[in-house]
Simulated scan of single mutants.
Amino acid sequence: MGSIEELKADLKRGRIDRRTFMSGAVAMGLSVAAGMSVANAVAAGTPKRGGTLRIGLGSGSTTDNLDPITIDSMFNQVWSFGSLRNALTVIEADGSLKPELASSWETSDAKTWRFEIRKGVEFHNGKTPEPADVVASINYHRGADTKSGASVILKEVSDVKVDGQFVVITLGAANADFAFILPTTCSAFAPLRMA
């Protein structure tokens, strides 16, 4: 048998159960109370998968639908953007920007942006998103007759096209914050072009 640190590591990783941990701890000379204290500390610091998250939200109605253009309430925003759709980038709680559907992005002049689309992502129907899906989603929000609230912000986009595994977005004027603006305008990249 190893050290108490090895036992703690095994308990944390789920390699041993609490009873095995306590047997080993007592065999190493820890009292039952001390062993329980260590086991409780390890259990408190170990994340667990699964569970249920319940959120109370108002304003849901029978007229709600999955069209990202018609999102008009906090209920629809939370359930749509938090559960159904992805953005190219996301803003973390600390204000940093991280990739989501895009695995990386780059710009040399803050006017032309290249987003590489992440591999290994699937729509709910098992289809792999392709750059053309992202282009279609963005264009859905910036069409001539669109009623999307994101269209105001996406007016600065002059062109969106596919270049291999990249989506290339060209702006009318340079905007160094464009990658930050995308997740706040629309988590638009839903399966709008499902096969």
Rank of each mutant, 00 (worst) to 15 (best):
A34H: 10
P47Y: 10
P129W: 00
A93L: 11
S73T: 03
E92C: 01
G82N: 02
H141G: 05
S96T: 08
T112L: 08
S137Q: 09
D17L: 04
T63V: 14
E5H: 10
V134N: 01
S137G: 15
R49P: 08
T52V: 11
F178R: 04
L154W: 12
K111N: 02
E5Q: 14
S187I: 09
A132F: 07
N40T: 00
I69K: 15
E5W: 07
N40S: 11
A173D: 15
P47Q: 08
I4H: 10
F178V: 03
P129F: 00
K111Y: 00
Y140R: 06
I138F: 14
S37K: 13
K155L: 14
G51S: 09
N76L: 10
G24E: 04
E116T: 15
V90A: 02
S59G: 00
A9F: 09
I71G: 03
E5K: 14
D145T: 10
D72Q: 10
L30N: 04
G35P: 00
D10F: 01
T63L: 08
S158N: 04
V152E: 13
T146N: 01
N86E: 07
T62P: 03
D64H: 00
R118E: 06
L88K: 00
M74S: 12
N65P: 03
E122M: 08
E156S: 14
